[in-house]
Amino acid sequence: MNLSLATKSQLIIDKAKELGFDLCGIAEADFLSEEKDRFTDWLDKDYYGEMGYMANNIDKRLDPRLLVENTKSIIVVALNYFPEHTQKDPDAPVLAKYAYGKDYHFVIKEKLNALLAYINEEIGETQGRAFADSAPILEHAWARKAGLGWIGKNSLLLNRKLGSFMFLGELLIDMPLEYNSESYPDFCGGCNRCIRSCPTSAIVAPNVVNGSKCISYFTIELKGDIPEEMKGKFENRVFGCDICQDVCPWNRMVKPHSVEAFKPNPDILSLSKKDWFEMDAHQFGSLFKNSAVKRTKFKGLKRNLNFLEE
Rank of each mutant, 00 (worst) to 15 (best):
L5P: 00
A6C: 04
A6T: 14
A6P: 09
S9V: 04
Q10P: 10
Q10I: 10
L11T: 08
I12K: 08
I12Y: 06
I12Q: 07
I13F: 15
I13L: 15
D14W: 00
K15Y: 03
A16T: 02
K17H: 13
E18N: 11
E18G: 09
F21E: 06
D22P: 10
D22H: 07
D22S: 06
L23E: 09
A27Y: 05
A27M: 06
E28K: 15
E28W: 13
A29L: 06
F31Q: 13
L32S: 09
S33E: 12
S33Q: 09
S33A: 11
E34F: 07
E34S: 11
E35I: 01
D37E: 11
D37M: 05
R38S: 13
R38G: 09
F39C: 08
T40L: 14
D41R: 15
D41C: 14
W42M: 02
L43G: 03
D44E: 09
D44I: 06
D44N: 08
K45V: 04
K45D: 00
K45P: 01
K45Q: 12
D46W: 10
D46E: 12
D46N: 12
Y47L: 03
Y48M: 01
G49I: 00
G49V: 00
G49Q: 04
E50G: 10
M51F: 04
G52D: 07
G52T: 11
Y53W: 13
Y53H: 12
M54T: 12
N56L: 14
N56K: 14
N57F: 07
N57P: 03
I58A: 07
R61T: 01
L62R: 01
L62G: 02
D63R: 02
P64R: 04
R65V: 08
L67M: 05
L67Y: 08
V68D: 02
N70V: 00
N70Q: 04
T71S: 06
T71H: 00
K72R: 09
S73N: 05
I74F: 11
I75Y: 12
V76N: 14
V77C: 03
V77P: 10
V77L: 07
A78M: 13
A78R: 13
L79E: 14
N80C: 11
N80V: 15
N80F: 11
F82H: 10
P83E: 15
P83G: 13
E84M: 10
E84K: 15
H85N: 10
H85Y: 15
T86C: 04
T86Q: 13
T86I: 14
K88Y: 10
D89E: 05
D91E: 13
D91V: 04
P93E: 05
L95R: 06
L95E: 12
L95F: 10
A96V: 04
A96G: 09
A96T: 03
K97P: 13
K97R: 15
Y98K: 03
A99M: 02
G101Q: 06
G101E: 04
K102E: 04
K102N: 00
D103A: 07
Y104A: 09
H105T: 14
H105D: 14
H105R: 12
F106M: 10
V107T: 12
K109M: 09
K109H: 08
